[in-house]
């Protein structure tokens, strides 16, 4: 039986995100994308487009200069409980 694929959860702090696009640039699997938010400096903030593609490499979190993005691993048992 194949090892179950790890699941991840990405949290974005939209208050602190400045829309610099670095996280979108460094992500190897295109999990993240930008959405318009005209109140922000660059006019956009990051959002999670496709969390299933996430491999948990942590590059977005390490490369975010604004402490705005966090990657969490979803524990397997918790996932089973939630269905």
């Amino acid at each position: 039986m194949a090892k179950p694929k790890k699941k991840f959860r990405i949290e974005v702090n939209e208050e602190w995100c400045k829309g610099c696009v670095i996280c979108v640039d460094v992500c190897p699997t295109n999990v993240l994308d930008m959405k318009d938010m005209l109140s922000k400096w660059e006019g956009m903030v990051v959002y999670v487009k496709d969390i299933d593609k996430c491999i948990g490499c942590d590059l977005c979190e390490l490369s975010c200069p604004d402490f705005a993005i966090e990657v969490y691993e979803v524990p397997q048992e918790e996932e089973a409980q939630s269905g």
Partner: peptide
């Protein structure tokens, strides 16, 4: 480790100083 009330930080969007701070 951070003083949350001072955030978001002053640096321009995309500046590497935040990466160094982390």
């Amino acid at each position: 480790y951070i003083r949350e009330d001072k955030f978001p930080n002053i640096w321009c969007p995309g500046c590497g100083i935040g990466i160094l701070m982390k």
